[in-house]
Design a protein around this nucleic acid. Structure first.
Length: 151
DNA sequence: GCCAACGTTGGC
DNA sequence: GCCAACGTTGGC
């Protein structure tokens, strides 16, 4: 079982939306490094839900990978912002996962707090200028985050 | 709203 | 295959 972190803008889709929906297909990732991380996920992996472009910034809760290797339907949808004219049903480019709501943390673990606790090498989301929206989280770091979230 | 970081595109 | 131009992300 691995740990991950995925970003979303809560104005677009936040942890409250996931709580309501229970599961969601994580569409719209159009970065190859992020896609490759999505491809390497396994059912049962735990994913920290990071709220970006908002106040407060930080990890809002936890979700779980429910289904892997799902073709992102928006790549085929000419009306979608995420449409990819080079993708076909026969040879899709973008795979993603379906995630399931686990919990909302009692308090957001803010980016400032994360910066105080973790180095940019341990937790990539605290790297300056980091734009990757899907990233791995080392086991020890994940355990500390979970502990902090309860405290 | 600004702008630094940085991934992508396209001309050569 | 290089790299300048461009577009987007996301913190501030």
């Amino acid at each position: 079982m691995k740990y991950w972190l995925m970003k979303s803008e809560p104005d677009v889709y936040g942890i409250e939306d996931l709580k309501r929906d229970r599961t969601t297909l994580w569409d719209g990732v159009r970065n190859y490094q992020a896609r490759n991380f999505l491809r390497s996920m396994t059912p049962g992996d735990l994913v920290f839900f990071y709220h970006s472009n908002t106040t407060p910034l930080g990890i809002a809760g936890l979700m779980k990978v429910a289904e892997v290797n799902v073709d992102d339907p928006t790549q085929f949808d000419a009306k979608s912002n995420y449409y990819d004219s080079k993708a076909t049903k026969e040879s899709p480019r973008w795979q993603t996962v379906i995630v399931e709501y686990v919990e909302t943390f009692p308090h957001i673990l803010t980016l400032d707090t994360l910066r105080e606790t973790f180095s940019p090498d341990d937790l990539w989301v605290v790297r300056q200028g980091n734009r990757l929206s899907v990233m791995p989280v080392p086991e020890e770091v994940a355990q500390k985050i979970l502990k902090q979230a309860k405290g």
